[in-house]
Simulated assay, not measured.
Amino acid sequence: MSNSVMQVCPESVNAPERVMPVTIITGFLGSGKTTLLNHILNNRHGLKIAVIVNEFGDIDIDSQLLVSVDENMVQLGNGCICCTINQSLVDTVYEMVDRHDSVDYIVVETTGIADPLPIMLSFVSTELRDVTRLDSVLTVVDAESFTSTHYESEAALNQLIFGDIILLNKTDLVSPQVVDGLEDYIRSIKPSARIISTQYGEVPLPLILDIGFNDSSTYLNSSKLSHLHDYEHSHHLENDGFVAVSFESESLPEQLRQCPFDLPKFQNFLDHLSPDVYRAKGIVWFQGSQLRHILQLSGKRCDMKSVHATSLKENRSQSPKRNQLVFIGRNLDAERIKRQLIECLAT
């Protein structure tokens, strides 16, 4: 990484009134935001980054998939910091800025159904403008599953409209002609956006961090400004019709809490999953296996990767043999999904 990116106001880093650069990562469900975030953390070359993740659903899956998250979900093993928004965004950011361990940069990862505008406005129209500088909004797009029907969701459309940089991700899964067509479509919505094609969220960090690409004047006078409050994802979900269905072992009757899934039954459940499920993710345990399995489902694409339990953040007061799943979509029958999952347990 070049020195121009590495040196983020070095003289002001230790000063209380320092201005902290902020990058917002947004994008529709399953586009690859967490993969991009892990890429940033793995390739930051000494830059101390504070990560703020705003998980949708009752179970915090993404923070467990981040790099080396410790038991308190605050200090990353690589020297960076991670937290969730469990208070107002303003208070969370101030907590990051006020830390005395020389944080250089803040990255905010939104949920897949979040309208980025309220978050952006929090940095430019509240007291945060005195201690932070909104550097850019990165919108991640899944080149394979991208469809204009995403934009039945106002939040998903705003992810493009307010994106300074559009990362056209997973381009290895489609033809060059499809990539060209997607770029033309994106430019029809946001002509000024910088479009970068990428695979697995791997993009040189000098292209996306500390680039000063955001121009707040393009949205600061938005009609939504008068309605600005602390960001609450439930508001956007209600407007766009999205719901989250959470399933975890701890919520089951006691006799079922230690039961793993039966793999054939669970595979059959996935094969017949409602098309109204846009996104699913989870950490699951199968009968006969000592490994944990990370499930990632986006549209029709499903991936399951096995990992050792020790590589995941666990609450030591709880058994590592537990299942956690979140399903995100429209018109979902929560009770039916939970009932089907219980039927997948090896009892």
Results as ranks from 00 to 15, higher is better:
Leu167Glu: 00
Arg339Asp: 15
Leu220Asp: 08
Val69Tyr: 03
Asn86Phe: 02
Pro10His: 07
Gln159Met: 07
Arg18Gly: 14
Val67Tyr: 10
Glu202Trp: 08
Val107Ser: 06
Glu335Gly: 06
Asp303Met: 13
Pro10Ile: 11
Tyr231Asn: 04
His235Phe: 11
Ala50His: 08
Ile85Ser: 13
His150Ala: 07
Lys305Ile: 13
Asp240Ser: 09
Leu341His: 04
Gly32Thr: 02
Asp101Pro: 00
Cys82Gly: 10
Cys80Phe: 04
Val326Ser: 12
Glu232Ile: 08
Ser4Trp: 13
Ser216Pro: 14
Lys33Leu: 00
Gln296Ser: 10
Ile106Asn: 07
Tyr94Pro: 06
Gln340Phe: 11
Gln296Met: 02
Glu127Lys: 15
Val284Ser: 00
Pro320Glu: 01
Asn72Met: 05
Val51Ala: 07
Glu17Asp: 15
Ile24Ser: 07
Leu138Phe: 00
Asn42Gly: 12
Ser145Met: 11
Tyr200Met: 12
Pro253Ser: 07
Leu173Ala: 05
Gln296Thr: 04
Val13Arg: 11
Val243Pro: 04
Ala244Pro: 01
Phe56Pro: 04
Ile195Trp: 00
Val141Leu: 03
Gly30Phe: 14
His150Gln: 10
Phe162Ala: 05
Gly212Phe: 09
Ser298Asn: 10
Lys170Arg: 14
Leu263Tyr: 13
Gln258Ile: 10
Val19Ala: 11
Val277Phe: 06
Thr35Met: 07
Phe266Trp: 08
Ile189Phe: 12
Leu205Phe: 05
Glu254Arg: 15
Lys321Val: 07
Asn42Val: 06
Leu121Phe: 00
Phe261Glu: 03
His229Thr: 14
Lys190His: 15
Ile113Tyr: 08
Ala309Ile: 03
Leu205Ser: 07
Ile186Ser: 02
Thr23Ile: 08
Asp210Pro: 07
Ser122His: 12
Asp58Glu: 15
Ile342Gln: 11
Leu128Met: 03
Ser216Met: 13
Val107Ile: 03
Leu29Tyr: 12
Asn38Glu: 12
Ser88Pro: 06
Ser175Trp: 12
Asp333Val: 05
His233Trp: 10
Pro320Met: 00
Asp276Lys: 14
Glu232Tyr: 11
Ile328Glu: 03
Glu154Asn: 10
Leu341Phe: 01
Val8Cys: 05
Ala309Gly: 06
Ala155Phe: 09
Lys321Thr: 08
Val19Cys: 12
Asp303His: 14
Asn14Ala: 09
Asn158Tyr: 09
Ser175Phe: 01
Val107Met: 01
Leu160Glu: 03
Leu66Gln: 11
Ala156Gly: 10
Ile189Lys: 15
Leu134Ser: 01
Ser175Gly: 02
Gly241Ala: 03
Lys305Trp: 09
